[in-house]
Each structure stands twice: as structure tokens, then as C-alpha cells.
Amino acid sequence: MIKIFAQFSDLALAISVSLLVIFYSASPVISADTAVIAPLATQSLLLDGQRIDDTLVVVGERGHILISEDNGSSWMQCQVPTRATLTAVYFIDRQNGWVVGHDQVILRTRDGGSSWKLVYENPEAQSPLLDILFLDDNHGYAIGAYGQFLESFDAGSSWEGRWISEDDFHLNQIVAVGDQLFIAAEAGFAYRSDDQGQNWTLLDPDYQGSFFAIFPAEHNRLLLFGLRGHLFLSDDAGETWSTTTTGTEASLTSGIRLDDGSIVITGLAGVILTSHDNGSTFALHQDPERKGFSQLLQAADETIIAIGNFGVTKLSQQIFMIK
């Protein structure tokens, strides 16, 4: 996710998508507060989402967690014990999920999102958590700004912090690909672990800009992307990388594989990249409203749901039929 700190101005709003974490100049939010049920929550800044079976879950500013069980036609806002901006969500199955965000809050649900419990927070650290991943019901990781790396072995009830690098660059996204873990980070850094996160190898895509996401394509291919439309491919677990032309200098924020097998990467300024050859080439489309996309989700009925600085909306299927 784009983890850029900026004051909340019109310019920041234009670039505030899932991979952007907004640093508010106001006093820190007290995360023990309960999120306010807001009639316009579906139009607020939303930063991440996940589909679990027939359910969609999205998260964003002011502690908003929204759930849809009708393919995005309607949304229910959850009661949440924080007003901190929430940056990432991860469900291991239909019942068990976790959310992270500013103030280093970590929330857990054991009932599919009907209720949420605050299991960790550290507002004094002033470094938001930006992504979360669980390998099974008990073992998980939360990563974030300034090199924050937390690990849990008890389903998120407790967390242990450590450093995986001598640098304090922001760790933006963590994914599991087979038995390996990968992290996309800022300043051209990416990491791989071959032993469930105990040790990390620095990868070298030969680029100095930030990476906001890493996406596993088919046949063990990795797509690594971020600032100024840069996108790198690796077919050997990150040992070597090649570049792919995207046709845009907009920052790229997230990737999704649609049910038809195509890959879609979205970004700022309404950028949508579609690939029908496993990421070797991409066709560029620009949303006419130039939305700042943070994430796309495909509902069970194949509806495409977009979230970002505009909230949540459905997109036309025609956008994804570009050859």
C-alpha cells in the first residue's frame, strides 16, 4: 500500500488511496473510542478490502469497517472500538479476520465481522501499521511505517516486535506465495523470507522508488509495482527482475486476478491496467472520473467493486474487456 504521509489537503485527497496512509496534523486519535456510525461512510476514504466467499469487507478512515452480503449493492457499517484510520484487512476464513491501522491498532473478529475486539495498540510509536497477513489460524504478521514488524503466534492475542532490516524504510505490503513470504517496501526495497519470516533476503529490482504492492501471478511469477507507473516481473522468486511497459506515470496501488484469469492493476488518476497474458503485457485504461483507486474486489456475481478516496462504488464490466 502507498504509505505516504501528507497533510489532509485537496492534493492529499486526490492521491489518498489504499496505498496512501494519511498523516493528520490534528492530535492523535484516541483509539479506545468507538467509531461513529456514519450515514456517508460508503463515501469516505476506504483503503483496503477483501472478499470472503459471498461477503465483502472494506476498511478505511475513522475506524470504518463496512460489510456487504449482496455483492456491493448495500453496505452495513460495523461497531468498531477505534476511530483510528484502518489501512488493511485480512480474513483467514469466513469467521476469523484481523484489521490494522494508525496508532498501531490491531482488531480481531471471530464471528465474520459482526463484532470486533481491539487486541493491540501503540499510539506512542507514531508509526501506522500498513498491512497484515496470517499463515494459519494462529501465526500472523503486521507490518508498517519505519520498519515496523510484528509477529503473533496466538491468533493475534499478543504480538512481538522486531526488526528485519537495519534500515527503517516503510514496509508496505506482505504476501505469501507458496512457502515463501515477500514484502514490498519503499526506496526500491523488497524482501523475501524462505523460513516463515525468521530471516529475510533483500531483493534488488534496481529501482530507487517506492514499491506499494507485490502480486503473485500464475506460474510462480511475481509483479512488483509502485511509484510513477513502474512495474517489475520476476519468474525466479525475486532473484532477477525485468520491467514491463505500463504507459502511465501514475502510481500503481493494487492488483487483482479476475474470475476469467485476467490480471487488473489499479492506481492513481483513474489508472486501470489489464493483462490477459499473466502480466507480460498490459492495456491501459483511464477511468473518466480519474478516481484514486486503492483496491478492486470482484463480488460473487462477478460485479467489480472499487474502493478509494471516493468511498466504494461499482465499475462497468466494459473497462475490463480491453484486449
Rank of each mutant, 00 (worst) to 15 (best):
L107M: 10
L129V: 03
N172F: 03
G144F: 08
N172V: 05
W163T: 11
A176Y: 00
Y120W: 07
D136K: 14
D136I: 14
E151C: 07
S158F: 03
E124W: 00
V105E: 06
S115W: 04
D168R: 11
D111G: 09
Y141G: 07
R162T: 06
G178R: 05
N138S: 12
S115F: 01
I132L: 02
I164A: 07
D168F: 10
I164L: 11
Q126D: 15
I174L: 02
G140V: 14
R108Q: 13
D137Q: 15
D167A: 13
S157G: 05
E166P: 09
S115P: 05
I174H: 00
R108L: 06
Y191S: 03
G156I: 09
D136R: 13
V119A: 05
I132G: 01
D137E: 14
A185N: 02
E151T: 13
R192V: 09
L130G: 01
K117M: 02
A125H: 04
W163S: 15
G188W: 04
F153P: 00
I164E: 08
Y141M: 14
D131W: 06
W163C: 04
H139R: 15
P128S: 13
G144T: 06
S165T: 13
I164T: 03
N172T: 06
F189D: 00
L107E: 08
L129K: 06
G188C: 07
V175T: 06
A155P: 02
S165E: 08
V119E: 07
G144Q: 06
R192I: 04
G144R: 03
S115K: 11
L150M: 08
I106Y: 01
Q148W: 01
N122R: 12
V119H: 08
Q104W: 01
S115Q: 12
D136T: 14
L150N: 07
L181I: 08
P123K: 11
V175C: 04
S127M: 11
D103K: 07
Y141N: 05
A190K: 09
E124K: 08
G188P: 04
L181G: 06
L118I: 08
W159S: 12
N172D: 00
